[in-house]
């Protein structure tokens, strides 16, 4: 299964890549929304784990583009900035779910697996 992690925090990307690698996921990363869209245009991705607050294009904007570009790709929002309004906006725009950092790695993996099931990939 191919996962794309989008976050402007490089430490977070490194840590998550390491952990997900260990669970045999294929992981790509992008540090901002624009890079994420570029990557998605060329590579099929099952699940995107997307930060909400990023410099440049924010997570909600990126989410809208992803849903236009590849509607079958499931997007999980994962943010350090809890905001009820943004949570509902993200869900309305078609996010698979909205999670807050810090997230237990197992919880995130269950969520990714569930999202993948929906996007049609099971393992």
């Amino acid at each position: 299964m191919h996962i794309l992690l989008v976050d402007d925090e490089t430490e977070f990307l490194e840590l998550m890549t390491k952990r997900l690698d260990r669970r045999n996921f294929q992981v790509s990363t992008a540090a901002n929304g624009a890079d994420a869209l570029k990557l998605l245009a060329g590579t099929p991705v099952d699940v995107v784990v997307l930060d909400v607050r990023m410099p440049g294009m924010d997570g909600i904007e990126t989410l809208k583009h992803i849903k236009k570009l590849t509607p079958a790709t499931e997007v999980i929002l994962l943010t350090g900035h809890a905001n009820m309004e943004v949570a509902l906006e993200g869900m309305t725009q078609g996010a698979f779910d909205y999670l807050l950092k810090p997230v237990a790695i197992n919880d995130l993996i269950f969520k990714i697996q569930d999202a993948a099931k929906k996007s049609g990939k099971t393992t």
Partner: peptide, 19 residues
Amino acid sequence: TFVRGQCARVAANVFQIVR
């Protein structure tokens, strides 16, 4: 942060339920 976090969590989950 707790109050905002729990409100955001519960809202996202209730949205999921409705969806």
